[in-house]
């Protein structure tokens, strides 16, 4: 059997596949071209502060919500 070399993450309700079997939140943010954007991230229901992006590792099956501010009343 092949060792897992990819993983699936559920991001904002959609499954996305990644080639790495694990990566940090910071790497994900870079891959999604969200670096420097004003966003907030929740992983499996818990908020990850920006200062922790480089320390938190993502695993297959993690569920993420990535949000921003939009127009609203």
């Amino acid at each position: 059997m092949n060792k897992a070399t990819s993983m699936n993450l559920k991001i904002n309700g959609n499954i996305k596949s990644f080639d790495d079997s694990s990566m940090t939140v910071e790497t994900l943010v870079k891959q999604l071209n969200l670096l420097g954007k004003r966003i907030a991230i929740e992983k499996n229901g818990m908020i990850i502060s920006k200062s922790e992006f480089q320390n938190i590792t993502l695993q297959d099956g993690d569920q993420l919500e990535i949000v921003g501010a939009v127009g609203g009343g």
């Binding site: 071209n33 004003r38 966003i39 990535i66 949000v67 921003g68 501010a69 939009v70 127009g71």
Partner: peptide, 20 residues
Amino acid sequence: ITVAIRRTNIGQNEGEPSLL
């Protein structure tokens, strides 16, 4: 001014201007 919190568009319309 009030703002709403919503899911960010992933992988589409990059560089699109934002309210901010």
